[in-house]
Design a protein around this nucleic acid. Structure first.
Lengths: 222, 222
DNA sequence: CTATATAACTGACCACCGGTCATTACAATC
DNA sequence: GATTGTAATGACCGGTGGTCAGTTATATAG
């Protein structure tokens, strides 16, 4: 009768299976936040949960499908946070700052976004991939709605802004994914280089340039 | 006396070893272009060359160090091609088009650039990594020199442009790295989505916005 | 021309990975 | 209590990147 499935019990009803799937995802995300993408192993995840490795494959076809699901969750979660943070009549700079800070605050979203196309989407069955793209379309739609309002742009311009921000976010945060070089003795020129690729200003400066670009294009096209 | 080292001969002098190293890199690049990053295996590379796997590790400490070297080569090769293609007084659009087309034409450069920070740079010894960053600094320098001339920008602005183009290139070409969905029956909305992320127009439109943004910022700061 | 020292080269070996599937064990139904 | 469907298991598979004791080609000294 209880809707909780203890790890040593079997999930029989559809409801219990959905519950167990969610429990797997929860543990997976915690584990992912600890060790990152490359060190994440299915056997260790199984041990973390207290299930056998084979059981994981009853709930996800591949390691990548699990990551795709985590990505979807984090996308939805982040866009909700971002949308709630937006207000009317923002400057492009304030908008970009909110976008960057909310995205960075979610430890799962950016690392998975960056790996989406060249790692995760390979080794996922096509129908699952299609459904994931549709989730993406819905989120772009929702984000464009509020963006249009916050930046006083047409709907088409807002869609353009949202898509472009995604592209820029991937590029600008690339440097954050490199190995940590803190406390290493680096030559000054290399230190300067790293500093000049600091992701936050890199993103915000160019986000503003792009948003203003989109704005002025509309003016000259009347 | 011959400077060629047959695969069944041993490379003894420093010169011969350098030659063998280059031969390994050459075969590795051909093999990489065939199978891509994920399917690239050191044992298969060894078989392709006709050496034992262990021998590869005499020339490269890790698989990733080999990739880092291929990346460096491709960066230098591409920037030479791009620089040679630039002319005086180009429009920002013509500049961006040249940048995109030359970078896309090199089958090695973009796939490795995209994986640089979150895959390749991990598992490479720090000193090697530092030297690679210095190669990067030199290329940025060389690119900024001609960019300054082609776009009639100050040196500082040109450096800003070059660095930002790299960021944008990574973001904009992300979609090209997904699994091939040609000949699949996709819902129309997903087809539209994919079309709207076509990398070339995505890159060029935003490259122009950014270059023009950098230009106008200078005007308003006098 | 031969003996010796050097180090380039080898490949069996290691610990691990993602993924499979015959077998087991349990909960619901009869 | 017996039957049955299926969730769960974990030994197993073919592969990976990387190691290192041992082999052997070769430059050089005698």
């Amino acid at each position: 009768m209880s809707s909780v499935v203890a790890i040593n019990q079997r999930a029989r009803s559809a409801e219990q299976k959905a519950l167990r799937r969610r429990a797997v995802l929860e543990t997976a995300e915690t584990y992912f936040l600890e060790v990152g993408y490359e060190a994440f192993s299915m056997s260790k995840l199984a041990k973390n949960i207290g299930l056998a490795k084979g059981t994981l494959y009853l709930y996800f076809q591949t390691r990548e499908e699990l990551f795709l699901t985590l990505y979807e969750q984090s996308l939805i979660r982040w866009s909700q946070v971002f949308i709630d943070d937006l207000s009317d009549a923002m400057t492009s700079k304030a908008y970009s700052q909110k976008l960057f800070s909310t995205a960075s605050a979610d430890g799962t979203f950016l690392p998975l976004l960056i790996r989406l196309e060249h790692m995760i989407e390979h080794n996922v069955a096509i129908p699952r991939l299609v459904s994931s793209k549709q989730v993406f379309i819905n989120q772009v739609e929702a984000l464009a709605e509020v963006t249009s309002n916050s930046l006083s742009l047409s709907k088409a311009q807002a869609i353009e802004v949202v898509k472009t921000m995604g592209v820029l976010l991937i590029g600008a945060t690339q440097g954050d994914q490199g190995p940590s070089l803190d406390h290493e003795e680096l030559p000054e020129d290399v230190q300067d280089l790293i500093a000049s690729f600091s992701s936050e200003p890199l993103f915000i400066k160019n986000a503003v340039r792009i948003i203003e670009g989109i704005r002025t294009e509309a003016l000259s096209n009347i």
